[in-house]
Amino acid sequence: MSRLNEAEIRRIAELAVKQLEGQATAANVEKVVHEAVQRMSGEGAATAARHERMKNVPPHNQAKGQRIILTAFGANSIGILAGLTSELAALKCDIVDLSQKIMQDFFTIMILVDAGNSDVAYEQIRERMARVGESFNLKVIVQHEDIFKTMHRV
């Protein structure tokens, strides 16, 4: 019962009024409402099952529109990758793809991140990753994936 929202309660009331049509005694109302709630819990169960199924869907499909590309570059030092990835893990960001190169001591990394399960706002992810970057003297750029798709795909 506690999971019913306002719209559902309204629906129950409408159902009750429709079925009773002027014979609304206290007992009748209770009976009708009880039946309606039973029916809707059935629907609720279906929704829960759908959520259960969605759990098995690969996260990048589920969190459509929540993919972020993190790029970082600067002088190479020990622990950069660990620093970046542990912060991403703390932010509940899933790493989907990662590409890293070191060219003449110059560290470059691109991480494709699924932030669909993160409960932290985008701005905060950006800020916290920039802070990790600062501690390693790296320039960290966090951008939504869509801008790259837009510019590089017809």
């Binding site: 590309i69 691109m110 750029i141």
Partner: peptide
Amino acid sequence: MRIELPEILETIRMTEV
């Protein structure tokens, strides 16, 4: 639709440099 590293670096070069 995988975005390649050179494409990402190109975008960043465009905006940063």
